[in-house]
């Protein structure tokens, strides 16, 4: 019988941690099936994909290699720049504003003494999180429709000319950010609220005895206690900075062509490309570009965090 030390160690630790390993199993399988296995499909980005009658795998193998040909369409216009800029800038705003507002809301909710009222506010803020983007899209449409929208109606009653929101990109960066925050802030503030509830009450009592007012308590107790959670959630968000919320950028602007300059992000671009030309190779190329840059970003931001505080880094 062959013995190999690492294998022995592995079998020993795995019998010891049997229960834990069983618990991670579903997630591991999920990742293998839906994240690692499909990675082999990356080769399509370097091929001119043609159908074979022997099925999908045969199609991949038999298709012709074309090198970087499929990446060219991304960079032939300034599309690559626009979608990269849009994706990253929006996400930066989402992360920064989302964090500030969610933490502020959590602190406010925690400080409300009438617990019943706090629950009502919390539920009200949480509710939009459960709506699908399609519904949110119609919701926004009822505000911004040219002739029936609430906004134009109100503007009209003040004698302001109605505005064609869906063909003028000027205000869309703001609209997108506001809609995103409206939908997501409730969820995040609940996470922070839970963390605040977990802070030892004796800390606040001690502070009060020392004569600290509310503002000083928040600054010197609540926020420092929240910092690890804030770092982790922000890091995770940065990891996804190259992934845009498809529904937000597709449903809410109603796929209006004139708004693409400010609403086209990598995800919608890939989707539209695949839909209109059916060139799987090019869509895969765009997807690969997204993953690669995303990967670089996560590694870099994690590296920066590690430099400042090793414990707060993800890996």
């Amino acid at each position: 019988m062959i013995t190999w030390e690492p294998l022995d160690v592995f079998s020993k630790t795995s019998t010891k941690n049997k229960a834990m390993l069983v618990m991670v199993l579903p997630a591991t399988l999920w990742f293998i099936l839906f994240s690692y296995l499909p990675m082999a499909g990356m080769v399509i980005a370097f091929k001119e994909y043609r159908y074979s009658r022997d099925g999908f795998l045969a199609s991949i193998i038999e298709s012709k290699w074309v090198g970087l040909q499929n990446f060219k369409f991304l960079f032939s216009t300034n599309d690559a720049y626009i979608i990269t800029r849009n994706t990253v800038l929006y996400n930066v705003f989402f992360i920064v504003l989302g964090l500030i507002i969610a933490v502020a809301m959590a602190i406010v909710l925690a400080e409300i003494t009438n617990k019943k009222l706090a629950k009502i506010y919390q539920t009200g803020m949480f509710l939009p999180y459960f709506l699908s983007w399609v519904i949110v899209g119609y919701f926004v449409f009822s505000f911004l429709s040219l002739d029936r929208g609430v906004v134009n109606r109100i503007a009209g009653s003040f004698g302001i000319d109605p505005m064609n929101w869906y063909s003028d990109p000027t205000y869309w960066p703001i609209i997108i950010v506001v809609v995103f925050l409206w939908k997501s802030v409730g969820y995040n503030s609940v996470i922070y609220l839970a963390a605040i509830m977990g802070i030892d009450k004796s800390l606040y009592e001690a502070a009060m005895i020392d004569g600290a007012n509310k503002w000083q308590q928040i600054r010197n107790i609540t926020i420092p206690m929240l910092t690890p959670l804030i770092t982790i959630l922000t890091l995770l968000a940065i990891g996804k900075i190259f992934y845009a919320d498809f529904g937000l950028f597709y449903q809410v602007p109603r796929d209006s062509g004139t708004l693409y300059s400010v609403t086209n992000v990598i995800d919608t671009y890939v989707y539209r490309g695949l839909k209109s030309t059916g060139e799987i190779g090019m869509s895969t190329a765009a997807g690969l570009y997204q993953s690669l840059i995303g990967f670089v970003l996560v590694i870099t931001s994690n590296g920066i965090v590690r430099k400042f505080n090793k414990d707060n880094a993800l890996f």
């Binding site: 369409f73 032939s76 216009t77 062509g257 539209r272 209109s276 030309t277 090019m282």
Partner: peptide
């Protein structure tokens, strides 16, 4: 094919409007 894909993207931006 590359140019067609890029042209298609431009078309989607302006055509319907």
């Amino acid at each position: 094919a590359t140019e067609i894909a890029a042209v298609n993207n431009v078309k989607q931006e302006f055509w319907a409007a």
